[in-house]
């Protein structure tokens, strides 16, 4: 005996997957086709049996673990972002410190001899400078710098 043409759609009817017009047609068909009606009863019984299984509930401790787990992910994400940033900052600092240590104010890496006014200033008697209000020291500085600049 050939299978009913509606048979393939019984499962979709059971699962609420048919469009309203198709659903109406199927309902009419079910009223007069015992095979399809039996198939539908079978699917309904199966669904009842499966959904009738006891449903376990998540424990309070497991729920707390879920919340905690997400908190750890956030911390890990922050660490993941911060670690390379901190490493980069440390490297920049190290390079700067090395550069400051090596490079002189003139911008060259080679050490230059002190200017005359610097040498003079190093040997100046603090009392003498204080005595003329620092004028002679200022004069030496100007003269020294002028010489350095080729004036």
């Amino acid at each position: 005996m050939a299978e009913c043409e509606f048979r393939a759609r019984v499962m979709r009817y059971h699962d609420g997957e048919l469009a309203p017009s198709e659903r109406r047609k199927m309902a009419e068909h079910l009223a007069r086709c015992p095979d399809c009606a039996r198939e539908l009863a079978c699917l309904q019984a199966l669904t009842r049996m499966v959904t009738d299984l006891p449903a376990p509930e998540i424990s309070g401790a497991a729920l707390a673990d879920l919340h905690e787990g997400v908190g750890h992910v956030r911390e890990r994400a922050i660490t993941r972002i911060c670690r390379p940033a901190a490493l980069a900052a440390a490297m920049v600092l190290a390079v700067c410190a090395f550069w400051l240590h090596q490079v002189q104010p003139s911008g060259t890496a080679e050490a230059r001899p002190p200017a005359a006014w610097e040498a003079a200033a190093a040997t100046l008697d603090a009392e003498l400078v204080r005595a003329d209000g620092g004028n002679s020291f200022a004069l030496w500085m100007v003269e020294g710098l002028s010489r350095e600049n080729g004036r």
């Binding site: 376990p56 424990s59 497991a62 673990d65 787990g69 997400v70 992910v73």
Partner: peptide, 10 residues
Amino acid sequence: AEDVLQETFV
């Protein structure tokens, strides 16, 4: 199930 759920939310 708890382990799978933890991995799901993470």
